[in-house]
Write a protein that binds this DNA or RNA. Sequence first.
DNA 1: GTCAGTGTTTAACG
DNA 2: GCGTTAAACACTGA
Length: 276
Amino acid sequence: MPELPEVETVRRGLTALVQGAKINSVAVPYPKAIVSDLTDFQTNLAGATIDKIDRRGKFLLFRLSNQKTLVSHLRMEGQYSVEPVGATPHKHTEVIFTLDDDRDLMYNDTRRFGRMQLVPTGKEYQEVSGLAKMGPEPTEADLDITYLTSILAKSHRKIKPFLLDQSNVAGLGNIYTDEVLWQTKVHPETLTDHLSAEEVANLRQNIIQEINRATVHHGTTVHSFSNVFGEVGQFQNELDVYGRAGEPCRRCGTTLVKIKVAQRGTTYCPKCQVQK
DNA sequence: GTCAGTGTTTAACG
DNA sequence: GCGTTAAACACTGA
């Protein structure tokens, strides 16, 4: 379900619905979803209040009143929803947080890839490997042009897997990477050290703008994504390449082509995006 | 029945 | 260490 704009959309919904709520108890129908010690997880969450919900890259960070942070990654299809207390769990409900105010916060995950863990607040960047290595957020303030130029130049790999690697830039996934490369007119298999200074500058701008636009549209729904309110995103209507293989390029009319790059389906325009 | 899939991690190999 | 490829995770839907 989620790349950064979708996770941010979920974060905002969760903030509106459960910030300030107190957790009474936690049931875990699918224990594999919990990476940290299960007993510790349940014991420490009981009685804690959700003070705030942060996001870093594609991770959600529930800040709790007891100096602990619940780190949650939705992977492909994780979803949160809020139901009246005692609501019948879904077939793929993995964790149920019963709140003090007669509501249940449910975590559902059809594909069962999502994971969560409880860590001491402040230690999340050491204890969660994905967070420890996380690159800068794709924002004007954090994604420094000098940094981006430097890591692109010293890397010797294809631009697509480079952008999917969260340690380089946080938050991009398969959809937005294809979109951004099309906008920048760069072939997905172009080697990172072959990009011109102008292309790097454009790439940076397009990354920042695309993530922003998608967030404003509440994310992209292509398979199952919905926010905490059960609403789908709107950005799927704005996509130029993802899911459009066989259709004409919106810039030049050439038929878009789909290939595999680093094991991921990749759609691009063979005329606009020529490999150098 | 087969295959692809919004993500990440790990192993094997050059 | 760097990079690539394949596989694994688990399940749904085309």
